[in-house]
Simulated assay, not measured.
Amino acid sequence: MIVTAEVAIARECLTRYLDGETPTVLARDLNQRDERTALGHEWNGDSVRALLDSHHMAGIRVFRGEEVG
């Protein structure tokens, strides 16, 4: 299921990261705006990095440890 609010945050983070902002700065800003992760936690640099590095977010399918699409 696609959650529109989460998609908007993911796009924003990716765009701002590609524009040169660090994951820590992004996390700080998201927390100041009271945005939470999908599990309801506060953001930190590691959680932003995990979002940006996610195979799922990139549309890469993995089956038994191998990229398949």
Rank of each mutant, 00 (worst) to 15 (best):
H41A: 13
T37V: 03
Q32V: 04
D46V: 03
E42H: 12
E42Q: 14
L14I: 12
P23I: 00
V7C: 08
A58T: 06
G45C: 06
E42L: 14
T4H: 15
R49F: 07
F63G: 05
I9F: 00
V68I: 12
R61T: 13
R28F: 06
M1V: 07
R64E: 08
H56K: 15
P23C: 02
T24Y: 10
M57P: 02
I60S: 03
L14D: 10
E67Y: 04
E35S: 05
A5K: 12
D19M: 09
D29F: 04
G45L: 02
H55D: 13
H56F: 10
E66L: 07
R28D: 08
A50Y: 05
V62I: 13
A5V: 09
A8M: 14
E6L: 14
L26N: 01
G69S: 08
V68G: 04
L30Y: 00
A50D: 14
R61H: 14
R16S: 03
V25W: 06
E12I: 02
T37W: 00
E42G: 15
R28I: 05
A38P: 11
T4R: 15
V7M: 14
A27D: 02
V48C: 03
I2R: 14
I9P: 00
E12A: 10
T15I: 12
I60W: 04
R16D: 02
D53H: 06
D53C: 04
R36F: 08
R61I: 15
I9A: 00
H55Y: 08
I60F: 05
E35K: 11
R33V: 04
F63R: 13
H41Y: 03
F63I: 09
L39E: 08
S54I: 03
V7A: 11
L39V: 09
G65A: 04
A58D: 14
R49L: 10
R64Y: 08
Y17V: 01
S47C: 09
N44I: 02
L52C: 04
R36M: 06
G20H: 11
E12P: 00
T15S: 07
I60A: 06
L52G: 00
L14H: 12
D34Q: 15
W43A: 00
E21I: 03
V68A: 06
A10H: 01
N44P: 03
